[in-house]
Simulated scan of single mutants.
Amino acid sequence: MTMLNIRYEKTTAPKELPKEDNPLKFGTIFTDHMFIMNYETGKGWHDARIVPYAPLSLDPSAMVFHYGQEMFEGLKAYKTEDGRTLLFRPNKNIERANNTNRRICIPEIPEEDFLDAIKAVVKTDEAWIPTKPGTSLYIRPFVIATDPFLGVRPSDTYMFIIILSPVGAYYPEGLNPVKIWIEDEYVRAVKGGVGEAKTGANYVASLAAQVKAHDDGYSQVLWLDGVERKYIEEVGAMNIFFKINGTVVTPKLNGSILPGVTRNSVIELCKTWGVPVEERKISVDELYEASNNGSLEEVFGTGTAAVISPVGHLRFEDHVMQVSDGGIGELSQRIYDTITGIQLGDIEDTFNWTVEVK
């Protein structure tokens, strides 16, 4: 039973489910239903409902269009071999969503209501969860400011929406190592800004550098800090890890780096396995030196969409650094196998990371 008193309006024209033998391109197919809840100052969050997936009707002056007051999250649902539906660490996403809400002056959503909303819409479209290896149901909760007003202030009205998308691998390369461009011209975020919030401003700021990297044959951009322009921050839509001389190193959260759920999971796994792990500043010079002396053993990105994305080459200015032999590292593979095994219910969840949708 949900605490939300959700109103249901089921579709009368269900779409055809994707065929399992067709590759699922990430973020292009959407399920039959979506969750919506409204907010109004003085009234709070209200009118929770699950309705047919359809275009939204918004005033052209809605504040989200003009001032970018919006939050979004991303998590996944998985179908186990015995038919259960599992969410992976949804409470961490909800916690991060409310941290973002506070940062950009959106009213917080009660955690229990947030989780109930996710479970309810996933349960409604449970038939859409793909079961082919490497696939899952991507869950996209987001909040938009809807006041029809031109003026810089927090909105008085909002919509909280959850949409669902059956997905395959985020990167067409799959678990094959990708090439990463270390950006030295543009800046993604600075401490004191919104770098640690999951809001569209961080992503639109990254587009110019991504286009430049893609044009040169690189999959993603690795960002440097916005002040000294020498310390590694994060890569594209992911956090980044380096295994240097047996120790796993990842940039310390500093106010401009997104606190990734997969990032946190990787750190916990390494500590459990006895693998040395450090959260600290790491400079591009240190990386270059480690590459030259052979101690740069593995590099991988982490995120909800890709889980683990091994990196085979790093480019900074005119220098191209090959990571080890350019293949998938042993630790990267172990982390990927363990996290996906827990997500799919194939490995015992000793961390209590999964939540079943019933």
Score class of each variant (00 low, 15 high):
173 E>F: 01
239 N>K: 09
172 P>I: 00
213 A>L: 10
184 D>A: 04
210 Q>L: 15
256 S>E: 15
176 N>E: 15
179 K>Q: 05
255 G>C: 12
164 L>D: 00
217 G>H: 14
186 Y>I: 01
177 P>I: 11
221 V>C: 05
164 L>K: 03
252 K>F: 11
203 Y>Q: 06
169 A>V: 11
173 E>Y: 02
228 E>C: 08
188 R>P: 01
195 G>Y: 11
229 R>S: 10
216 D>E: 15
218 Y>P: 03
182 I>D: 08
200 G>A: 14
204 V>W: 04
177 P>V: 09
191 K>F: 00
184 D>Y: 12
225 D>F: 05
249 V>G: 02
254 N>P: 02
178 V>P: 12
188 R>D: 02
240 I>S: 01
192 G>A: 08
207 L>P: 09
208 A>S: 15
234 E>T: 04
167 V>Q: 00
258 L>T: 08
198 K>A: 10
205 A>K: 12
245 N>T: 01
257 I>Y: 01
182 I>R: 01
174 G>L: 03
213 A>Y: 11
256 S>A: 15
239 N>L: 13
164 L>T: 02
230 K>A: 09
235 V>A: 10
164 L>A: 01
189 A>E: 02
213 A>D: 05
167 V>E: 02
222 L>T: 04
247 T>E: 12
189 A>Y: 02
205 A>P: 02
220 Q>A: 07
196 E>L: 04
179 K>T: 01
182 I>Q: 01
176 N>D: 14
253 L>E: 00
244 I>H: 12
193 G>H: 11
207 L>M: 15
194 V>N: 04
203 Y>F: 13
247 T>R: 14
229 R>A: 10
210 Q>C: 11
235 V>M: 14
175 L>Q: 08
184 D>T: 15
249 V>M: 13
238 M>L: 04
250 T>D: 06
180 I>P: 00
200 G>M: 07
224 L>M: 09
249 V>N: 04
228 E>L: 13
225 D>S: 11
196 E>Q: 13
